[in-house]
Nucleic acid binder design. Structure first.
Lengths: 156, 156
DNA sequence: TTGATTTATGTAGTTAACTACGTAGTTTTA
DNA sequence: TAAAACTACGTAGTTAACTACATAAATCAA
């Protein structure tokens, strides 16, 4: 069945993007569960960032993952409760809280590697169509950097 | 500056989609405001649906816009408070509440037409890159219908 | 034709992001 | 070197979707 929103075209693009993001996140959740791994997709950006850059402050993480710092703080709270990360004050700058993976966190990352690999394969198969979704996102983000949606409408 | 999430590739695709959806929605909000129109982007699916199909029940609307019925109900409450829609009981089926645009709603739709037209032009320019975002979304949705992300991972 | 099932709507509470605002520590400047 | 500005972090409250559950009307089946 074709509904109005699928037909209304580009005006509903933000709704369409949202819906697709939601579906992928939910499937991600189920995939971790099916693989016996206690992990939430929303934790991925923080954990993956700390895996690549082992010691970062709260704001550094928020910039890496592109979230606001309050959002980052609430993710960090969950991860600390799960004992996947720990934090300590920066001796050189008392305002900063330095975050890193715990041993449990590092072990979990190692366990998730094969799942992540399969996810990459599945997602690549899913999105590698005539118009590649990842590339399309990158291209649109580049376009917006040049001239945002707001600015483009104003110029008409 | 390139951050970790932009580099982590396809595993963060749901985050990337979400972010793009948010940015477009926020710009949409500003565009309505800049054009002196008191309208929220989140109302678009309901209003546009009722513009195309003038009388629908709550569940019919929720199916058209692809939201759950509780989400739809809360949108309808806002729109009723704004006096953009009104509802009446279906005489033939007392369970149903039939929704339609008010005169104020119809007038607003007419006023928004030129803004929508400019939005379409701006969004088309923004997304009509080498890999077309709208087409990519449609292709991925079709792929998921065939075999979801969850099912694809399981088969590996 | 009444009991069971389905459908339509509604309410309550959750989630995952956000903005706005406040405080404490660091850096810059007059 | 003290005041001003900036930076880092935190809290409170909002938003826009969701799931789970409840109720009433309609339909189906024995």
């Amino acid at each position: 069945m074709i509904n109005v929103i699928d037909e209304s075209g580009i005006l509903a693009i933000s709704t369409r993007l949202q819906r697709l993001a939601d579906q992928l996140r939910k499937d991600g959740q189920l995939i971790y569960k099916a693989n016996g791994i206690d992990f939430e997709p929303k934790w991925f950006p923080v954990i993956y960032t700390l895996y690549l850059k082992p010691v970062l402050s709260v704001v550094e993480i928020s910039m890496e993952i592109g979230y606001t710092h309050p959002s980052t703080i609430s993710l960090l709270k969950e991860l600390e409760k799960e004992k996947l990360i720990r934090s300590k004050k920066d001796k050189l700058d008392e305002r900063k809280r330095l975050i890193q993976l715990t041993e449990k966190g590092k072990t979990l990352v190692a366990e998730m590697q094969p799942v992540w690999q399969r996810m990459v394969v599945a997602l690549t198969a899913l999105t590698n169509t005539k118009n590649n979704l990842m590339k399309a996102i990158e291209e649109v983000e580049a376009q917006m950097k040049t001239l945002s949606f707001l600015e483009r409408e104003r110029q008409l």
